[in-house]
Design a protein around this nucleic acid. Sequence first.
RNA 1: UGGGGCGUAGCCAAGUGGUAAGGCAGCGGCCUUUGGAGCCGCCAUUCGGAGGUUCGAGUCCUCCCGCCCCAGCCA
Length: 566
Amino acid sequence: MDNDKDFENIESSSQKTEKRNFIRDIIDDDLKTGKYREVHTRFPPEPNGYLHIGHAKSICLNFGTAKDYDGLCNLRFDDTNPTKEDVEYVESIQEDIRWLGFDWGERMFYASDYFERLYDYAKTLIGAGKAYVDDLNADEIRRYRGTLTEPGKDSPCRNRTVEENLDLFERMRKGEFPDGSKTLRAKVDMASPNINMRDPVMYRILHATHHRTGDRWCIYPTYDWAHGQSDSIEGITHSICTLEFEDHRPLYNWFIEQLGIHHPRQVEFARLNLTYTVMSKRRLLQLVQEGHVSGWNDPRMPTLSGLRRRGYTPESIRLFADRIGVSKADSTIDVSVLEDCLRTDLNKRAARVMAVLHPLKLVIENYPDDLVEKLEAVNNPEDESMGTRKIPFSKTLYIEHDDFREDPPKKYFRLSPGAEVRLRYAYIVRCTGVVKDPNTGEITEVRCTYDPDTKSGSPASSRKVKGTIHWVSAGHAIDAEARVYDRLFNVPDPGGENWKESLNPNSLEMVKGCKVEPGLVVAKPQDRFQFERLGYYCVDDESKPGNLVFNRTVTLRDTWAKIEGK
RNA sequence: UGGGGCGUAGCCAAGUGGUAAGGCAGCGGCCUUUGGAGCCGCCAUUCGGAGGUUCGAGUCCUCCCGCCCCAGCCA
């Protein structure tokens, strides 16, 4: 409930007034004509991998649409292939959907719940002369299938009697035949221009242990056979799926019609593609297995667990799903859309804090040696209710290395010899010089003087200076590590066979020796902050008291980088 | 070249015969103790192309072009 409220607050204006898309048009029509009386959808993942942002689009669509129409959405695991599936995945999938903010109530199902029923349905089809046991092996089936331009030809087994088919099918179930030696096929049309109708396989023999049914079965339904009937059994009204299943729809309809059971309506939409990443399970699995990333939840991964660890919020992902819309046109969304959704959300709720990633010592020559002032800082200028805090200020500070240039370019508003800058929430200082390492020439310290009249909040503080920089007090700051993430790939579309060549070698920079304001001692994993002027960071799961680790979630919009880049 | 889909701005996307919403990106400006945020403005005489119907076409018709998917006992 809270989530919904927050979410609505994010997107205030025009966009959220009404979500329009072709699927809602279809539903409106079905409701109006009385084809269906309510809306019942389902999200049907195969538990063979972790969910990614593309699944999030589907989850938001299925759960979101059902909710908006006061309908229901089931979670169903399409677990028809025991050789690829695992409980590890069914657990992570549930966790990710819940985290995203959706709830399937008591309606969590498995296709394997229906194995017995599917078996009976199959016998019904056999009895009606609409399915047969085939002795052809995989290779032979492929050859008999024909090609895109030539029709297939009938299997020699196609005209077995009902009795023989029934007998053989029962013996398949009993385990009398080895893997791959027989299949049950639907008897449709080997000459159909739609290859999916050329007697598709319904059951294959697989002596494999299933993560739920164990060794009870040695024949398993194919997806094509199981999916539509599972939807039907659950009373699904709208089976929303991706485009590649569009030409399977005639087959699914055929099964349903032969069986005379509840007929869901399948609607297909275009799957999500995002720039600078890959989305296929095969490739994601490869990234994990070959060690290009640390795991499924590596913060650079487009998986929900990766995005979560990176610091993405469920609200930002739901907003994203809303903004990109749904259509049937193949599309690739610019990752900046996702990033903007995140900033929109975090800007309103992340507490501001000062952190220096690359510390450079700044000494205020005319500041008393032992004085420590507690200065008041605003926690979030976007939300007054988040209050203020006190931060210590002293003679020796750390500033960002980037915020000082000995030889500043034009329009550089930060510190340089002779220049004045505002120290955020503190004083205006003027740079008086630098101290260099006599051997390396490296700047080890910046010297400055401060103007005591310009303390933040005092009347004279209204004096304008061009720049404001962040800082921490050297004697009070605590150490931290920052993991600065960048896009996983160097190119917008890492497609083709050589996709791994465009992996970004600099997608992770470990920055040790960061200095952060003392209040952060209490930060716990998943806490999110805005490091002022730098970006949004969240505490990593590996972070421990005394060994703080922050992940950079996303940078702030950086106008200066843009100017300097030109 | 069989079948199924899809083409509206750099990227998405509304639009349902009445004169091209919105978002992201980009570009100007205002404002600012975050080069953040916010605010204002600009950004499609035209909807893949060509014909046709109509007083009127992104929407209807015809032809053409381009892109995606399908020949797993994967999903």
